[in-house]
Write a protein that binds this DNA or RNA. Sequence first.
DNA 1: ATAAGTATGTGGTTATAACCACATTTTACG
DNA 2: CGTAAAATGTGGTTATAACCACATACTTAT
Lengths: 223, 223
Amino acid sequence: MDKEKLKKTVVFRGMEDDELDAALAALGAAERKYAKDEVILHAGSTTDMMGLVLEGSVRIESNDIWGNRTILSHIAPGQVFAETYAIVENAALLVDAVANRESKVLMLGIGSAAILGHDASLWRLKLTANMLSISMQKNLMLSGRSFHTSPKSIRGRVMAYLSSVSLQTGSDEFDIPFDRQQLADYLNVERTALSKEIGKMKQDGMLTARKNHFNILKSGTSL
Amino acid sequence: MDKEKLKKTVVFRGMEDDELDAALAALGAAERKYAKDEVILHAGSTTDMMGLVLEGSVRIESNDIWGNRTILSHIAPGQVFAETYAIVENAALLVDAVANRESKVLMLGIGSAAILGHDASLWRLKLTANMLSISMQKNLMLSGRSFHTSPKSIRGRVMAYLSSVSLQTGSDEFDIPFDRQQLADYLNVERTALSKEIGKMKQDGMLTARKNHFNILKSGTSL
DNA sequence: ATAAGTATGTGGTTATAACCACATTTTACG
DNA sequence: CGTAAAATGTGGTTATAACCACATACTTAT
């Protein structure tokens, strides 16, 4: 495996060569090849290893008890999967990790023993900090999404979402990074229903919108 | 502040006295008192400090642009808040942290500088690992919830949820940790609508349910 | 064992969103 | 430009879930 590439990944970022070597050894790093559609990690099992995609692509999918499949995400080279399950003890995977095509994956044993290992070497600190960064980033996205999709009505979701963007930009006029279809998917609603609701919100004087540019009119509602 | 209590918190777990001292110093730990309903951290701002509740209770609430308030959670003594915003750089809070009653909070500067600080002391490693554990735990809950609430229909959500529980328990017969009302809240649906849907699923031969005990019948659907 | 209180289920009605079939607008590009 | 393609919006219909008002079942305490 290419060390220079590894040093650029989120996992090993900031490490020197010797640190990387030590880390790889301690984590029992093992490069594995998977054929297209081969299952890397099975839902229901536990793991103390996470995967770092080197080549190809891994998809995360769910197959519910009644046989319905949902594809949840795709993991690109340089990115990791199953890190949460590897670190949290006894957490059964809710999803399968499947090679989307012929792929190379670096499996890394980061079960909490590995992370906590009781010498305070620099590589261990860096690794842990990197994992923390990955996890928190994900966390932020997840809690945002959870917050934006918890209202039951479309209008509630749109308001929650636009409020967040407004807070982040510190302005009541901004562009959102989604087109209508993407916003609909993000909010778990149907596109045309979303268009209609945004139309109504315009009529109600809550906002103006043109494509992905929005302008919040605070006067509209609760005053 | 009471060091013995601190050493039992998720943040400082596993530290020796001297490590705890070093950590508190490095993090610029500052105990603060807040009056009931005093805002500790404002939505829209950024912070490099997280809060550890010592006494009282902190509530996390959202006030959207149009003035609607939603209470998202309550933080009890020994638990932390705003840790994600403190560690992820430039992440604006989407929520307010407010003292729910007169409360004491230990503010800890864990901005990434503090975490990454370039000496590999043991306290730093332990702290980072503890934060990682907190974050991943939360992550697991959040991604579970996101997964369970993304289907649009009640039936879809129930199926997603029960599938997960079934995977975790490794059985198609299990108890869930919710009563109907709680499950409805968790899935963001209305209680009586949930009861009805579970009734229909019984009729359709997908499952049997009595109170919080469920039995999945795989034959019912896709075969 | 009974009554009170809590949890769960059901029927009926209404509001809302999904869904479908297009109209209109915007964008890309030959 | 002018046309094709993509994105967005709208009307109408149907499916679904919220909502309300209770009925029933289960739990607990006396």
